[in-house]
Simulated assay, not measured.
Amino acid sequence: MSLPPNAAAVVFDLDGTLIDSADDLGAAANRLLASEGRRPLTPQEVRRFIGDGSRVFVDRTWAATGTPADGSDGAQGLDSLVARFIAEYQSDVAGHTRAYPDAVETVARLKSAGLAVAVCTNKPQRPAELVLEALGFAPHIDAVAGGDRFAHRKPDPRHLLDTLALLGVGSDRAVMVGDNEHDMAVAHGAGTGAVLVSYGYARLPLAEIEADARIDSLAALPALLGL
């Protein structure tokens, strides 16, 4: 699908698209690891592990630093570790997290131009809401769909379709903006336009990710949408 000529809604991914949250995610993970006598993650590992939600992030963290969370040597169950990680992260979601350049301003411009704006993220709902509030995005966003709001999450297209339902906008008049392969896959699966940013946490080479358009800065998005 190409970008709709009359877009009524823009849906953003969060981590790696609107915000650079790797430092705070890594800090929360490393506090948890330290409490269990494990080595810290490197910044490179943190960035590779981001994008699939807290459960997968913690599972990758545990597997990378010793016995996996479902191991037989007394390792705590994954559910317990995920709950502890979320509590650690939620206690300081924006200590070192920053909005990417022009991100807040672009979201505000889209909203002021009459478009509906939402966030569709695999980050849990409450931390997502907290960081959007802390960094000044919240007044310009109509809906937030975290990874635990629905029974499915990216790359399942139903995550994006249910987000659009919150806005009351059909997929043929919507654009998904993200930084990785999951964001573009969910856009294609849901039938929305797909815009890939050139920064963020993609695990595949950007040239291998199919998108309708590519931008180096969110500042380029309004013109791309004809605003």
Rank of each mutant, 00 (worst) to 15 (best):
101 P>G: 14
61 T>N: 13
87 A>Y: 07
91 S>G: 09
41 L>S: 04
99 A>W: 03
139 P>D: 08
40 P>G: 09
95 G>L: 10
96 H>G: 12
65 T>M: 03
109 R>C: 12
110 L>H: 03
124 P>H: 10
121 T>M: 06
49 F>I: 08
112 S>A: 15
150 F>M: 14
44 Q>A: 15
65 T>S: 08
66 G>I: 11
69 A>M: 00
144 V>I: 14
155 P>M: 03
71 G>M: 08
98 R>E: 14
94 A>G: 15
139 P>M: 13
62 W>R: 05
95 G>N: 13
108 A>L: 09
149 R>C: 12
82 V>P: 00
132 L>W: 11
122 N>M: 08
156 D>C: 08
149 R>S: 14
56 V>K: 13
147 G>C: 10
136 G>Q: 04
114 G>T: 09
69 A>F: 02
144 V>N: 03
47 R>H: 01
108 A>N: 12
40 P>C: 09
127 P>G: 05
85 F>E: 00
105 E>K: 15
87 A>S: 12
38 R>E: 06
130 L>D: 15
148 D>K: 10
96 H>E: 15
126 R>Y: 11
72 S>C: 14
88 E>G: 03
149 R>E: 14
55 R>M: 12
111 K>I: 03
119 V>C: 00
55 R>W: 09
99 A>H: 03
128 A>H: 04
147 G>F: 07
61 T>R: 06
137 F>A: 05
62 W>K: 04
154 K>D: 01
47 R>D: 01
41 L>W: 00
59 D>C: 05
137 F>D: 02
45 E>A: 10
157 P>V: 02
118 A>D: 11
143 A>F: 01
112 S>I: 07
152 H>W: 08
155 P>L: 04
38 R>Y: 09
155 P>S: 03
57 F>S: 01
148 D>Q: 05
142 D>V: 02
70 D>S: 13
132 L>H: 12
130 L>N: 13
140 H>K: 06
72 S>R: 15
107 V>S: 06
103 A>G: 03
79 D>T: 13
117 V>M: 01
55 R>K: 10
117 V>A: 00
93 V>E: 05
39 R>N: 02
156 D>P: 07
53 G>P: 12
122 N>C: 05
137 F>H: 03
115 L>T: 07
61 T>E: 11
